[in-house]
Design a protein around this nucleic acid. Structure first.
Lengths: 106, 106
DNA sequence: TTTACATATTGACAATTCCCGAAATGTATG
DNA sequence: CATACATTTCGGGAATTGTCAATATGTAAA
Protein backbone atom coordinates (compact mmCIF):
# COMPACT_ATOMS: atom_id res chain seq x y z
CA UNK A 1 0.00 0.00 0.00
CA UNK A 2 1.70 3.17 -1.06
CA UNK A 3 0.10 6.56 -1.10
CA UNK A 4 0.63 9.65 -3.20
CA UNK A 5 1.17 12.25 -0.53
CA UNK A 6 1.01 15.16 -2.97
CA UNK A 7 -2.33 14.11 -4.45
CA UNK A 8 -3.71 13.41 -1.00
CA UNK A 9 -2.55 16.77 0.34
CA UNK A 10 -4.11 18.56 -2.61
CA UNK A 11 -7.36 16.69 -2.03
CA UNK A 12 -7.38 17.63 1.64
CA UNK A 13 -6.55 21.28 1.11
CA UNK A 14 -10.17 22.30 0.61
CA UNK A 15 -12.65 22.70 3.41
CA UNK A 16 -15.58 21.04 1.67
CA UNK A 17 -13.55 18.01 0.65
CA UNK A 18 -12.25 17.71 4.18
CA UNK A 19 -15.82 17.91 5.46
CA UNK A 20 -17.04 15.25 3.07
CA UNK A 21 -14.42 12.90 4.41
CA UNK A 22 -15.47 13.65 7.96
CA UNK A 23 -19.20 13.37 7.22
CA UNK A 24 -18.66 9.95 5.72
CA UNK A 25 -17.27 8.70 9.02
CA UNK A 26 -20.84 8.44 10.26
CA UNK A 27 -23.17 8.39 7.27
CA UNK A 28 -26.25 7.57 9.39
CA UNK A 29 -25.72 10.72 11.45
CA UNK A 30 -24.97 13.02 8.56
CA UNK A 31 -27.18 11.87 5.70
CA UNK A 32 -30.70 10.57 5.14
CA UNK A 33 -31.10 6.80 4.75
CA UNK A 34 -29.67 5.62 1.45
CA UNK A 35 -30.82 3.22 -1.21
CA UNK A 36 -34.54 3.53 -0.50
CA UNK A 37 -35.55 3.21 -4.15
CA UNK A 38 -33.34 0.31 -5.17
CA UNK A 39 -35.33 -2.71 -6.39
CA UNK A 40 -32.84 -5.32 -5.19
CA UNK A 41 -31.48 -4.86 -1.67
CA UNK A 42 -27.72 -4.44 -1.77
CA UNK A 43 -25.13 -3.71 0.87
CA UNK A 44 -24.14 -0.09 0.34
CA UNK A 45 -21.32 -0.38 2.88
CA UNK A 46 -22.05 3.04 4.31
CA UNK A 47 -21.88 4.65 0.88
CA UNK A 48 -23.79 7.86 0.27
CA UNK A 49 -25.12 9.09 -3.08
CA UNK A 50 -23.91 12.29 -4.71
CA UNK A 51 -27.16 14.19 -4.29
CA UNK A 52 -27.20 13.64 -0.53
CA UNK A 53 -23.64 14.89 -0.27
CA UNK A 54 -24.43 17.77 -2.60
CA UNK A 55 -27.39 18.85 -0.47
CA UNK A 56 -25.23 18.91 2.64
CA UNK A 57 -22.28 20.62 0.98
CA UNK A 58 -24.48 23.28 -0.53
CA UNK A 59 -22.52 23.51 -3.77
CA UNK A 60 -23.51 22.73 -7.34
CA UNK A 61 -23.80 19.08 -8.40
CA UNK A 62 -20.91 19.41 -10.83
CA UNK A 63 -18.63 20.85 -8.17
CA UNK A 64 -19.48 18.10 -5.73
CA UNK A 65 -19.05 15.45 -8.39
CA UNK A 66 -15.64 16.89 -9.13
CA UNK A 67 -14.67 16.94 -5.47
CA UNK A 68 -15.70 13.33 -5.04
CA UNK A 69 -13.63 12.42 -8.07
CA UNK A 70 -10.64 14.28 -6.65
CA UNK A 71 -10.98 12.42 -3.36
CA UNK A 72 -11.34 9.13 -5.16
CA UNK A 73 -8.33 9.72 -7.39
CA UNK A 74 -6.32 10.45 -4.27
CA UNK A 75 -7.47 7.06 -3.01
CA UNK A 76 -9.44 8.47 -0.10
CA UNK A 77 -12.87 7.39 -1.33
CA UNK A 78 -14.36 4.38 -3.08
CA UNK A 79 -17.46 4.44 -5.26
CA UNK A 80 -19.99 1.91 -6.34
CA UNK A 81 -22.82 2.45 -8.77
CA UNK A 82 -26.25 0.98 -8.14
CA UNK A 83 -28.91 1.97 -10.62
CA UNK A 84 -28.92 5.68 -11.17
CA UNK A 85 -26.93 6.36 -8.05
CA UNK A 86 -23.25 6.38 -7.29
CA UNK A 87 -22.50 5.68 -3.66
CA UNK A 88 -19.28 7.04 -2.22
CA UNK A 89 -17.67 5.81 0.98
CA UNK A 90 -14.34 6.21 2.73
CA UNK A 91 -11.39 4.09 1.75
CA UNK A 92 -10.19 3.30 5.24
CA UNK A 93 -7.17 1.47 3.91
CA UNK A 94 -5.69 4.59 2.36
CA UNK A 95 -6.64 6.72 5.32
CA UNK A 96 -4.89 4.30 7.63
CA UNK A 97 -1.85 4.27 5.36
CA UNK A 98 -1.87 8.06 5.40
CA UNK A 99 -1.91 8.14 9.19
CA UNK A 100 1.01 5.73 9.20
CA UNK A 101 2.91 7.79 6.65
CA UNK A 102 2.48 11.02 8.58
CA UNK A 103 3.57 9.34 11.80
CA UNK A 104 6.58 7.50 10.39
CA UNK A 105 7.77 9.27 7.27
CA UNK A 106 6.83 12.89 7.54
CA UNK B 1 -2.36 22.54 20.36
CA UNK B 2 -4.70 22.85 17.44
CA UNK B 3 -3.67 22.71 13.84
CA UNK B 4 -5.04 24.29 10.68
CA UNK B 5 -5.50 21.24 8.51
CA UNK B 6 -6.22 23.28 5.39
CA UNK B 7 -3.07 25.38 5.66
CA UNK B 8 -1.01 22.32 6.47
CA UNK B 9 -2.42 20.38 3.53
CA UNK B 10 -1.68 23.28 1.20
CA UNK B 11 1.85 23.46 2.51
CA UNK B 12 2.35 19.74 1.97
CA UNK B 13 0.88 19.67 -1.52
CA UNK B 14 4.15 20.59 -3.20
CA UNK B 15 6.99 18.17 -3.77
CA UNK B 16 9.80 20.53 -2.83
CA UNK B 17 8.14 21.61 0.39
CA UNK B 18 7.51 17.99 1.28
CA UNK B 19 11.17 17.24 0.58
CA UNK B 20 12.36 20.12 2.73
CA UNK B 21 10.41 18.71 5.63
CA UNK B 22 11.92 15.28 5.07
CA UNK B 23 15.47 16.59 4.62
CA UNK B 24 15.21 18.42 7.90
CA UNK B 25 14.59 15.14 9.69
CA UNK B 26 18.34 14.49 9.44
CA UNK B 27 20.10 17.78 8.77
CA UNK B 28 23.58 16.25 9.25
CA UNK B 29 22.92 13.75 6.47
CA UNK B 30 21.33 16.18 4.06
CA UNK B 31 23.19 19.44 4.51
CA UNK B 32 26.72 20.69 5.10
CA UNK B 33 27.63 21.59 8.70
CA UNK B 34 25.88 24.76 9.76
CA UNK B 35 26.94 27.84 11.66
CA UNK B 36 30.62 27.64 10.83
CA UNK B 37 31.05 31.39 10.55
CA UNK B 38 29.21 32.43 13.68
CA UNK B 39 31.40 34.30 16.15
CA UNK B 40 29.60 33.09 19.26
CA UNK B 41 28.78 29.40 19.42
CA UNK B 42 25.02 28.89 19.65
CA UNK B 43 22.82 25.84 19.64
CA UNK B 44 21.21 25.76 16.23
CA UNK B 45 18.91 22.89 17.25
CA UNK B 46 19.34 21.19 13.92
CA UNK B 47 18.34 24.30 12.02
CA UNK B 48 19.60 24.79 8.47
CA UNK B 49 20.14 28.10 6.71
CA UNK B 50 18.20 29.11 3.62
CA UNK B 51 21.13 28.94 1.23
CA UNK B 52 21.89 25.33 2.14
CA UNK B 53 18.28 24.40 1.55
CA UNK B 54 18.20 26.44 -1.63
CA UNK B 55 21.27 24.65 -2.99
CA UNK B 56 19.68 21.28 -2.35
CA UNK B 57 16.25 22.25 -3.68
CA UNK B 58 17.71 23.74 -6.83
CA UNK B 59 15.24 26.57 -7.04
CA UNK B 60 15.73 30.32 -6.81
CA UNK B 61 16.41 31.86 -3.39
CA UNK B 62 13.13 33.77 -3.46
CA UNK B 63 11.13 30.65 -4.18
CA UNK B 64 12.81 28.74 -1.39
CA UNK B 65 12.37 31.63 1.01
CA UNK B 66 8.69 31.65 0.12
CA UNK B 67 8.36 27.93 0.62
CA UNK B 68 10.01 28.11 4.02
CA UNK B 69 7.63 30.88 4.95
CA UNK B 70 4.67 28.81 3.81
CA UNK B 71 5.83 25.87 5.91
CA UNK B 72 6.39 28.11 8.89
CA UNK B 73 2.99 29.77 8.61
CA UNK B 74 1.45 26.30 8.56
CA UNK B 75 3.31 25.68 11.81
CA UNK B 76 5.50 22.93 10.39
CA UNK B 77 8.80 24.80 10.71
CA UNK B 78 10.43 27.12 13.22
CA UNK B 79 13.06 29.69 12.39
CA UNK B 80 15.75 31.45 14.33
CA UNK B 81 18.02 34.19 13.07
CA UNK B 82 21.71 34.24 13.97
CA UNK B 83 23.76 36.92 12.29
CA UNK B 84 23.07 36.99 8.60
CA UNK B 85 21.54 33.57 8.57
CA UNK B 86 18.06 32.30 9.29
CA UNK B 87 18.05 28.71 10.45
CA UNK B 88 14.94 26.66 9.83
CA UNK B 89 14.11 23.45 11.64
CA UNK B 90 11.09 21.19 12.01
CA UNK B 91 8.40 21.98 14.52
CA UNK B 92 7.93 18.48 15.85
CA UNK B 93 5.06 19.56 18.05
CA UNK B 94 2.87 20.47 15.09
CA UNK B 95 3.97 17.42 13.15
CA UNK B 96 3.02 15.21 16.08
CA UNK B 97 -0.32 17.00 16.39
CA UNK B 98 -0.87 16.45 12.68
CA UNK B 99 -0.21 12.74 12.99
CA UNK B 100 -2.68 12.58 15.85
CA UNK B 101 -5.28 14.53 13.91
CA UNK B 102 -5.01 12.29 10.88
CA UNK B 103 -5.27 9.20 13.03
CA UNK B 104 -8.16 10.35 15.22
CA UNK B 105 -10.13 12.96 13.35
CA UNK B 106 -9.73 12.36 9.67
C1' DT C 1 30.78 54.02 6.52
C1' DT C 2 31.16 51.39 2.52
C1' DT C 3 30.80 47.01 0.91
C1' DA C 4 29.34 42.37 0.60
C1' DC C 5 26.45 38.85 1.53
C1' DA C 6 22.01 36.27 3.44
C1' DT C 7 17.42 36.62 3.35
C1' DA C 8 12.87 38.65 2.53
C1' DT C 9 9.64 41.19 -0.23
C1' DT C 10 7.62 42.77 -4.52
C1' DG C 11 5.91 42.52 -9.20
C1' DA C 12 4.97 39.80 -12.96
C1' DC C 13 3.31 36.04 -15.79
C1' DA C 14 2.17 31.11 -16.50
C1' DA C 15 -0.13 27.30 -14.57
C1' DT C 16 -3.44 25.43 -11.59
C1' DT C 17 -7.60 25.36 -8.77
C1' DC C 18 -12.35 26.92 -7.56
C1' DC C 19 -16.84 26.86 -8.89
C1' DC C 20 -20.52 27.40 -11.89
C1' DG C 21 -23.99 26.50 -15.81
C1' DA C 22 -24.62 23.83 -19.94
C1' DA C 23 -24.33 19.79 -22.24
C1' DA C 24 -23.51 14.79 -22.33
C1' DT C 25 -24.00 10.12 -20.47
C1' DG C 26 -26.04 6.36 -18.08
C1' DT C 27 -30.05 4.04 -16.27
C1' DA C 28 -34.72 2.98 -15.06
C1' DT C 29 -39.54 3.42 -16.22
C1' DG C 30 -43.83 4.67 -18.84
C1' DC D 1 -38.60 4.22 -27.80
C1' DA D 2 -39.34 8.62 -24.98
C1' DT D 3 -38.93 10.62 -20.80
C1' DA D 4 -37.08 11.68 -16.34
C1' DC D 5 -33.60 11.76 -13.18
C1' DA D 6 -28.59 11.00 -11.11
C1' DT D 7 -24.26 11.85 -12.27
C1' DT D 8 -20.32 13.17 -15.08
C1' DT D 9 -17.94 15.93 -18.33
C1' DC D 10 -16.99 20.26 -20.66
C1' DG D 11 -16.01 25.20 -21.13
C1' DG D 12 -15.09 29.27 -18.89
C1' DG D 13 -14.06 33.30 -15.69
C1' DA D 14 -12.25 34.45 -11.10
C1' DA D 15 -9.00 33.41 -7.64
C1' DT D 16 -4.85 31.16 -6.07
C1' DT D 17 -0.25 29.13 -6.61
C1' DG D 18 4.46 28.39 -8.81
C1' DT D 19 8.36 30.52 -9.96
C1' DC D 20 11.45 33.90 -11.29
C1' DA D 21 14.21 38.44 -11.51
C1' DA D 22 14.62 42.68 -9.36
C1' DT D 23 14.60 45.23 -5.39
C1' DA D 24 14.76 46.00 -0.44
C1' DT D 25 16.28 44.96 4.23
C1' DG D 26 19.27 43.32 7.81
C1' DT D 27 23.81 42.25 9.41
C1' DA D 28 28.75 41.65 9.50
C1' DA D 29 33.25 42.83 7.94
C1' DA D 30 36.62 45.80 5.64
Amino acid sequence: MDIDMIEISKALSNETRLNILKWLKSPEENFPPQGGCLSEPVDLKGGVCVSSIQAKANLSPSTVSNYLDTLQRAGLLLSERHGKWTYYRRNEETIKALAKFVKKEL
